[in-house]
Design a binder for these strands. Structure first.
Length: 589
RNA sequence: GGGGGCGUGGUGUAGUGGUUAACACGCCGGCCUGUCAAGCCGGAGAUCGCGGGUUCGAUACCCGUCGCUCCCGCCA
């Protein structure tokens, strides 16, 4: 090795030892006759001292050194002079006096500062990702990620899980997200697909008798990107045989707690993860991934609104839809502009408008809908919402989905604006008892709300015949701070039930055989009851690192346009490559 | 597919319908033997993303376009 110690390693106990360090120049301070170099490697930073009186050749070399040069330093560890210690540095009590300085490599001045944590345009960061990743913050993020994954592997190994790799080249299915396709060279006209998740394969591993499987699995979805969505991302994919829902919830809860204790920058907001039904989450928070770190809950006012003189509300309730509101404390002083901003959020989420009522500090109410309510009705609203003078009430009346979306978005926005979220903590909750089917029929058939292998709750199975729309499933999600961080379900392992579900969703035997034939056939050879879950590693690590998007915890992420600014991919390919793959462009490019 | 925001020396920002586009950091040179965001002195560095329009005059206003970003749709 070109070094004997790491740069974060040396302490008082090493004093008088001769050491060799190697790393990058974090900063150079040239005092004329003495030069200080902060030498940085992944482990930390050590101050190196180069004295003019010590060795002229070494000093001459040090004069030429610039930031980010790669150096090897041979020298002696010494105690810093009295009063010169740096309490900010873990190595701040010592320094290395250089006997020899070797420039292992020079470096151009980087396009942005490596030695400083400051905002840099993300275009530049992504183009020079290798320099961005050199920054302490990014190294720390990737180390959190490593620790999390290491914890997961150890935790699951101790509990009898085995890690099995599944193919990246697999089969396209029209269900779900858009597939990334890979044309076959040896099978003209045919395509592989990159897996959206190893869903089918892990179920087949259950049929194969592996009982407890996991994989740190790369997944691919060709959909538009978001702060928490990349075209390729990593899931902790898991499946367990002979398992019941609560076994999985309890296991994952223990795993999350251990992982956060081991790897997370932020602590848990609370120890036990609350379990909410999907219905309760939507009604109270307008989201199936609610941020429970603050209140501002949705309140149903349909009954009072139905008696009001406001036609929009009365019509809504007559149509069987809700009128709901949230109470924003202290926001009655909001300006027209601020209200307009909030209304824009409601509209962006499908609402046609955002009626509001201000409870004036000096008493009385303001807002054009207030005149449609009697004093009695207004008091009932205020009482039910536990509102006080100075508060602002924001309403939504529409289909319940629009009401959830609009008020859910407003709730999140106001939670941020008013600083109600404890942003330094992680607030987990389980969402359970999802509907088995989407509410709206598609072409006269039900659509699965998760996927077609999700099992109904056992005591709801009879309702598949009488009232399919009301059937709840053994599907569950884990949410944290308003993000979905895991989703899973107990699967259907029994053929008759699977056939019934396929009939309800209008899936013919022929279609099923075409797409899932291997899986359905496998289920006829003794499939054990099984279920699983898939936590999203990128989202969890971003949350644990306190980062606002998952690019900050991925080494080489893509832009919102799904490009890589460093390698400039995707890229055009030679005509020969098209020919080899038996494909051609749809039009001249 | 739709909507919002941003784009000014290497980096981060300021700025204005009108003379030479300002500041900090960085960079280059000089001084300096105890600094640690070193300090002091001097210097270089910007066709204000690109194209078009309005105007006597555009970095600024308008349109388009490209890039980055956030959101809706989409993501079983």
């Amino acid at each position: 090795m070109l070094k004997s110690h790491n740069c974060g390693q040396l302490r008082e106990e090493h004093i008088n030892q001769t050491v060799t360090l190697a790393g990058w120049v974090n900063r150079r301070r040239d005092m004329g006759g003495v030069i200080f170099i902060d030498l940085r490697d992944r482990d930390g930073i050590t101050q190196v001292v180069i004295n003019a009186g010590h060795s002229q050749a070494t000093f001459d070399t040090a004069e030429q050194i610039r930031n980010e040069y790669v150096l090897q330093i041979k020298g002696t560890v010494g105690r810093r002079p009295e009063g010169q210690e740096n309490a900010e540095m873990t190595t701040g009590d010592i320094e290395v006096t250089a006997d020899e300085v070797t420039i292992l490599n020079k470096a151009k001045t980087p396009p942005f500062a490596i030695n400083r944590d400051h905002n840099v345009d993300e275009t530049v960061r992504l183009k020079y990702r290798y320099l961005d990743l050199r920054r302490q913050k990014m190294q720390s993020n990737l180390i959190i990620r490593h620790k999390a994954i290491k914890f997961i592997r150890d935790f699951l190994d101790e509990r009898g899980f085995i890690e099995i790799e599944t193919p990246i080249l697999f089969k396209s299915t029209p269900e779900g997200a858009r597939d990334y396709l890979v044309p076959s060279r040896v099978q003209p006209g045919k395509f592989y697909a990159l897996p959206q998740s190893p869903q089918q394969l892990k179920q087949l591993l259950m049929v194969a008798g592996y009982e407890r499987y996991f994989q740190i699995a790369r997944c691919f979805r060709d959909e538009d990107l978001r702060a928490d969505r990349q075209p390729e991302f990593t899931q902790l994919d898991m499946e367990i045989s002979f398992v019941e829902r609560d076994d999985i919830l309890n296991l994952i809860e223990e795993l999350m707690k251990g992982m956060i204790k081991t790897a997370s920058r932020l602590p848990l907001a609370w120890d036990e993860f609350p379990r909410l039904s999907y219905h309760e989450a939507m009604e109270r928070f307008g989201s199936d991934k609610p941020d429970l770190r603050f209140g501002l809950e949705l309140t149903d006012l349909s009954d009072i609104a139905a008696e009001s003189g406001f036609k929009v509300f009365t019509d809504t309730v007559k149509a069987g839809n809700p009128v709901k509101a949230i109470c924003v404390p202290g926001a009655a002083s909001y300006s027209r502009k601020q209200i307009d901003d909030l209304e824009a959020i409601a509209k962006a989420n499908g609402a046609k408008g955002m009626p509001w009522i201000m409870l004036k500090q000096e008493g009385g109410v303001k807002g054009f809908i207030s005149k449609f309510f009697s004093d009695e009705q207004m008091n009932a609203i205020i009482e039910r919402m536990d509102a006080k003078a100075g508060d602002l009430l924001l309403f939504a009346s529409d289909s319940k989905w629009v009401v959830y979306a609009a008020l859910g978005a407003l709730r999140t926005e106001m939670g941020t604006r008013l600083g109600l979220k404890d942003t330094g903590t992680l607030g987990f909750c389980w969402i359970v008892d999802f509907p088995l089917f989407e509410e709206n029929l598609e072409n006269g058939f039900y659509a699965p709300s998760h996927h077609m292998f999700t099992a109904p709750k056992p005591d709801h199975i009879p309702m598949l015949d009488s009232d399919p729309a009301s059937v709840l499933s053994d599907q569950y999600d884990l949410a944290c701070n308003g993000f979905e961080v895991a989703g899973g379900s107990i699967r259907i392992h029994e053929r008759g039930l699977q056939r019934k579900i396929m009939e309800l969703i209008g899936f013919s035997i022929e279609e099923a055989k075409e797409q899932f034939g291997h899986l359905l056939e496998a289920f006829e050879y003794g499939a054990p009851p099984h279920g699983g879950i898939a936590p999203g590693i990128d989202r969890l690590v971003a949350l644990m690192a306190g980062e606002p998007n998952i690019r900050e915890v991925m080494a080489f992420p893509k832009t919102a346009q799904a490009t890589d600014l460093m390698s400039e991919s995707p890229s055009f390919v030679a005509q020969q490559q098209w020919d080899d793959l038996h494909i051609q462009p749809a039009k001249a490019m």
